[in-house]
Nucleic acid binder design. Structure first.
Lengths: 156, 156
DNA sequence: ACATGATAGACAACCTGGTTCACTATCTAG
DNA sequence: CTAGATAGTGAACCAGGTTGTCTATCATGT
């Protein structure tokens, strides 16, 4: 069975490929004025989105507890990527929004990811890359967002 | 640019695919008498290998400090997957070796990974899967082991 | 109008896996 | 046989996650 490649190579390559992309992203982000951002942060900011969220909502979309989401928001606030403001319609809620600096990081990330994808397309051929993406889509849940991801490798 | 798919989908799918495989592995491992093993553990045991290592060596191959490696070894020892024995040739060293239980986990993991890969082959077609693996190999470092991985997502 | 229940946020205590700094014991070379 | 490198360990700390508890504020049903 699998004389070609031992089964454990596949997951390892997937992880490695992810790492490579994320590392390149953050190297480039560092060059573009965002040296302190960490992988999770981009992740979380992506999940916050342009409209803003709350800790509870963010926790839900990220698949972590509201407390964990709250902590992450705190650090993100501390380094200037998000801001919290009370919701006038519901004084319990505090709406978390990206600051211009955070938005900048996000748009740069999007740009860089597009560039990285273009590099892959150049290296592999556009057709092969599309096949790869299509195959991955077939083997992964549609959700894309609810991946319970930040820190899952550590805790599970 | 990338009207097809936003650049950030690729890394996300890679991570998700990794997660799917690892989750399936551990569900199955749980069924086969290894309910307490966690993703890192299989990882680390794979890195320990059949000959055994030491904390320092393990740290090097894993890309973490010797102290971190030492802690992981401790937990692995506590749950019965590895054992430490003094090295007669160098009394400073303590050689870490897999126990039969640990070895069992490792061989079962290999088997399960092969099965999972076979599922992918059945789903995608053997040729597509080989293309995918080959493409990933092309885009990732050859090393395969020195991926600095356990916990990198949390800390970086 | 108001009591009851659900929800948002925050705090505390704890766990894991990682880090740095510091220290001891042992090996290895000059 | 001393000086320097190396193996292991311990302590203090950090990030991110968890559970459990508490308060404040909605939202609803009688």
């Amino acid at each position: 069975m699998s004389s070609e490649s031992p089964g454990f190579e596949l997951p390892l390559r997937l992880l490695l490929a992810f790492r490579v992309l994320i590392d390149e992203l953050h190297t480039e982000l560092g060059r573009q004025g965002h040296p302190d951002i960490r992988p999770m942060h981009g992740f979380v900011m992506q999940a916050i989105g342009p409209h803003g969220t709350t800790a509870v909502e963010l926790g839900r979309t990220l698949g972590v507890t509201k407390q964990a989401a709250g902590k992450t928001i705190e650090t993100l606030e501390r380094i200037g990527y998000v801001q919290r403001a009370p919701d006038p319609h519901d004084t319990r809620r505090k709406v978390v929004r990206l600051t211009p600096y955070g938005l900048d990081a996000l748009t740069r990330s999007a740009r860089i990811f597009d560039d990285l994808r273009a590099n892959w397309a150049a290296e592999l051929g556009a057709d092969r890359l599309q096949a790869l993406e299509s195959d991955l889509r077939k083997m992964t849940p549609a959700t894309l967002w609810r991946l319970d991801t930040p820190g899952w490798f550590g805790t599970l």
